[in-house]
Amino acid sequence: MDNLIYLIVSGLAFPIIMYFLTRAVGFGNAITFADTQEATSLLQATHTSSLITQTLVASNNQAALARFQDGHTCILFPMGHKWGSTDIDHTSLARISQSKHGHLHLHMRSYTLPRLKIAIDNDVLRQHWKTALTFGETA
C-alpha cells in the first residue's frame, strides 16, 4: 500500500515538475502561422486534390479554417509545437460556446478531439467563423 501511495504521489509530482521545467526553457509555446498565406498552404496540404475557396484565421494565428471546392471543410489547430487538422461536417460539432473575451469554444463530438479554442477579437470575424462552422445555418 505504501508503495502504491509513493507511486501515485511521485507519479503526479514528477510530471508537474517536468511540465514547469519544459515551460521554463521555452518548450511550452504553441505553434503559430505567420499569416493567412501560410495558413492556406498548411490547409491545402491536408487536401491536395481540391482547391481552397475560403480561409478564415484566428486572431492569434493559432487556428484556421478552410473551405474546399469539393465541399470539404477543414480546421487547422495547434497541438503544442505541431499542427493538427480535422475535417468537419454537420455532425462534428456538439455546440459552440463563447468566452467572456469573445473567443469561440468548439465542443466536438470526437473523442480524440474534444475541444478547440478559436481566439477571435472582432464581431465580423466571429460571425464568419460561426457561419462557416455551422455551414450557414446560423448566418
Binding site: 502504491l4 507511486l7 507519479g11 514528477f14 510530471p15 517536468m18 519544459t22 515551460r23 518548450f27 505541431k82
Partner: peptide
C-alpha cells in the same frame, strides 16, 4: 529533438499510471 510541455506531462503521467497498473 524536441520537448513539448503538455506532451511531456501526459507521457509521464501515463508512465506513472502504467506502473500503478502493474502494481494492481
Amino acid at each position: 529533438g524536441d520537448y513539448e510541455s503538455r506532451d511531456t506531462a501526459a507521457s509521464l503521467i501515463m508512465g506513472s499510471t502504467s506502473l500503478v497498473s502493474r502494481v494492481l
